[in-house]
């Protein structure tokens, strides 16, 4: 193959790897929003925190696989605590519609708090997480080479996506969750324990962000600013894909990943303006997003 074709394919896979990571973060984001109406600004901070947890676990045990297992669970635990102790507390105030403002501000506070706490605990120097020996090298195919670790990220995300799809669409639990996402009040009336489902979904969403964080750690260095770009990107995904739509989040994540990769190739420096402009356009013309069913 000639150099141009190799480059185009490589860029395509780069885009896929980032898009997949983005989807892992954004899917939790959109699930939580669709279900509870909470725009969790701190969501990407959980992604960043997971990367630090992975770093810390690897410092102690040296095993990446242990980190991949434990860090997301710890993050999900924190997410559940946040939902139980904080978000639920706000709902107790019976603030009516203004509850939206308070929830948004709470998540802003948590976002700043996580970032600052990380800086105080681990410092601002970037930390390096090594991929396990098994995933380090390069893989050869069709006369081109590509890092194994990025292929692993794509594979991992695909399996998580598959698992998520199976749970959501093939199990009773999934039915309950989807019902609660569609209409929490009605689900409650039908005897579903909605508060429990809320906690579950919040835990699941943060767990997904945690997986993405651990997976991203060896690919990027771990530093406190990791959350910023991810937050903006997942905002775009959720706004464009439609609030609460998993399918929309998937499509837009992939598009955004590719756009980032090829944008660097063909029109560097203008990606931000294009992306946010497009987001503003969609939000005004179709506030429910491209794939959203409800606001």
């Amino acid at each position: 193959m000639d150099a141009i074709a190799v480059m185009l394919i490589t860029q395509g896979i780069h885009g896929l790897a980032y898009g997949m990571l983005l989807f892992l973060v954004a899917s939790g984001f959109t699930l939580i929003f669709g279900m509870m109406g909470i725009l969790n600004i701190a969501h990407a901070s959980f992604f960043m925190l997971a990367a630090y947890f992975a770093f810390q676990i690897m410092q102690w045990s040296g095993s990446f696989w242990l980190a991949l297992l434990l860090a997301p669970i710890a993050i999900a635990g924190l997410g559940i605590l946040m939902e139980r102790l904080m978000l639920r507390q706000i709902r107790k105030f019976k603030l009516g519609k203004a509850v939206v403002l308070f929830e948004l501000m709470l998540t802003v506070g948590i976002m700043v708090c996580i970032e600052e706490a990380v800086k105080n605990l681990w410092g601002t120097d970037p930390e390096i997480v090594n991929a396990p020996e098994l995933l380090r090298g390069l893989v050869q195919f069709f006369g081109m080479t590509y890092p194994v670790y990025r292929i692993f990220i794509i594979g991992l995300s695909c399996s998580i996506l598959l698992l998520l799809g199976l749970i959501l669409f093939k199990t009773r639990l999934g039915n309950v969750v989807r019902a609660a996402v569609q209409d929490a009040d009605m689900a409650g009336a039908l005897g579903v324990n909605v508060p429990l489902v809320f906690t579950l979904v919040f835990g699941l969403g943060t767990w997904l962000a945690g997986i993405a964080g651990v997976a991203a750690a060896p690919m990027l260095t771990v530093f406190p600013g990791l959350a910023n770009q991810m937050m903006l990107d997942s905002f775009i995904v959720v706004a464009l894909g439609g609030f609460g739509s998993l399918f929309g989040a998937f499509v837009i994540s992939m598009l955004l990943g590719e756009l980032t990769a090829f944008g660097i190739q063909f029109f560097p420096g203008y990606s931000t303006i294009i992306l946010f402009g497009f987001m503003a356009l969609v939000l005004t013309i179709r506030p429910s997003g491209l794939f959203g069913e409800k606001e």
Partner: peptide, 12 residues
């Protein structure tokens, strides 16, 4: 950090 903790406590 202190600022964000104040915000969180106020909201809560």
């Amino acid at each position: 950090l202190v600022f964000s903790l104040v915000l969180i406590s106020v909201v809560l």
